[in-house]
Amino acid sequence: MRNNKFTLVLAAALCGISLPALAQQADTDKGIYGVGRVGATFGTGQKLGSLPDRSAFSADSDYKPGITGELGIGYDFGLFRVEQTAGYTQFKPKASSGAIGNTDAFTVSVAGYVDIPTGTRFEPYVGAGAGAARVQARAAQSANSLSSAYNGKDWGFLWHADAGVGYRLTSKMTVEVGGRYSQIGSLSFSGQNNTINTTYHPKLNTWSGAIGLRYRF
């Protein structure tokens, strides 16, 4: 019985110490911060959905690994952060797809992140965001006397989900390593299918990894 009482008293004491400590840490972490990230894309795929008859394009195609990066500013509320970022991502189709061309996406998004306190310098995080992407795309493919192509610029809807871990270098500076799944849709490009004018609606699905640096002012 005495052991049980001692355990309860000890647990209550630890809670009394840890909760104020977490609250104090969250309070000192508040403020505006800048962030920069750079990384690579992998496992990028494009879906064209419904295609016209006798199209040289495939409904699904894969892209080579590409580059990605973003800069932004955010506000840290303690255990929750809000960011606004602007970024750039480049895609090129794999040679095995039979298509040639390239796709560039300039993005703007707003995201929210939850930091998970561990009592150490390591701090995992999860989050998600949404925004818009200005996509410039050019693609062409020929096969079995068929030819399809599109070329143009359009704004699309962007959303992404993120997870990673941050490491506190100093009280103001945190380096992070994270992964992201993103999707860009609602795009429309004019093109041709066997010399007949048509419209294509590609959707891009991308996995990426990046290293970043956050600095709280």
Results as ranks from 00 to 15, higher is better:
N3L: 06
N4F: 07
T7W: 11
I17Y: 15
S18Y: 13
S18V: 15
S18E: 10
S18G: 07
L19N: 02
L19A: 11
A21N: 10
A21M: 15
A26D: 01
I32H: 01
G34P: 01
G34D: 03
G36V: 14
R37C: 07
K47F: 11
K47L: 14
L48G: 03
R54S: 15
D60L: 10
K64V: 02
T68Y: 07
G69C: 09
I73C: 01
D76Q: 05
D76K: 13
G78V: 06
F80C: 08
V82E: 07
T85S: 12
G87M: 06
Q90A: 06
S97P: 03
G98Q: 03
G98N: 00
I100V: 08
G101W: 04
T107W: 05
T107M: 12
V108E: 14
S109D: 07
S109R: 15
V114M: 11
D115E: 13
I116G: 00
T120G: 12
T120C: 05
R121I: 14
E123Q: 07
A130S: 11
G131C: 08
G131Q: 10
A133V: 00
A140L: 01
Q141R: 14
Q141W: 03
S142N: 10
A143V: 12
N144Y: 13
L146A: 02
K153L: 13
W155P: 11
A161R: 11
A161T: 13
D162P: 06
R168E: 14
R168C: 04
S171G: 14
E176W: 03
V177T: 12
R180K: 15
R180P: 02
Q183F: 04
I184K: 05
S186R: 06
S186V: 11
G191D: 06
I196Y: 12
T199Y: 09
Y200P: 06
L204K: 07
L204F: 09
L204H: 04
N205S: 12
N205A: 12
T206C: 02
S208L: 07
S208P: 04
A210Q: 15
I211A: 15
Y215N: 03
